[in-house]
Write a protein that binds this DNA or RNA. Sequence first.
DNA 1: GCCACTGTTAGCAT
DNA 2: CATGCTAACAGTGG
Length: 286
Amino acid sequence: MPELPEVETIVRSLGPGLRGRVIDRAELLFKPLLRRRPGGGLAGLAGRRVLGARRRGKLALLAFEGGWTLVFHLKMTGQLLLVDGREAPDKHTRLIIRFRDGGPELRFRDVRKFGFLLCVSGVPEESCPELSSLGPEPLDITLEDFRRILRPRKGRIKSLLLDQTVIAGIGNIYADEILFDSRVHPETPAAALSAKAVARLWGSTRKILTSAVEAKGSSLSDYVDADGQPGSFQFFHKAYGREGERCGRCGASIRRVVVGGRSTFFCPKCQRKRRARMQVAQKVSL
DNA sequence: GCCACTGTTAGCAT
DNA sequence: CATGCTAACAGTGG
């Protein structure tokens, strides 16, 4: 489930262990992993020093001296791990990068083989569409801009939160948690959201993603950080994966439906489609 | 064994 | 263009 909080955690746990080290060689064990190599291929990595690791959307970027960058997408089951080279790699290891100091090596593991790697020379935002097509970062965008990107959209809000060209880094788990927190029904057309609902959605996005980063992400099956440590945000999920359990706010039973082909968990009572109207009616009757 | 399901998204159909 | 569905892969659980 590497979404924004998981990729952020991976990148943070990678930086201190990689910065300043010089590559000896890279061994590509699964050729299709390397989707493009405008920079000339992985052989050219030998002798290059790591400058740092950063994140954009769900992509992890490793920057090297000389303007080279490795861009990883972990998709569903990808892992970036720092491990002792004496440990034998398993059959899911797709790439190994060794360093001249003989210290821990960087391995990319990916059970389902959906992940990919790009090797780029120059500014990656300028040369790869995988980066330039991404929408704004959800933790950087202002409420005003958030309104602006949702207003013209006809689609269902959940599908839009998952659309990386609209906003980058949110996946299925955090979309459900954000919608639950903001009490917005996942199937609400974006254009139909009230100004208040959009403001709550923006606030919940910041709140959920920030606390998920603090908890080092959600570990449900494969995700661990570069040191092999799981995150703990799964213990704080209030909607995702909780079908049939009690809603922590109102006690109703959490439901599972399919929205845009994705499992969607929500509270049918807290997250109503025409909530604003109902509330007015209730207030009046009081 | 078979079928349904899984965190993502590119690519195709509508 | 926007939106919706499926396949790509491997593993797991019923």
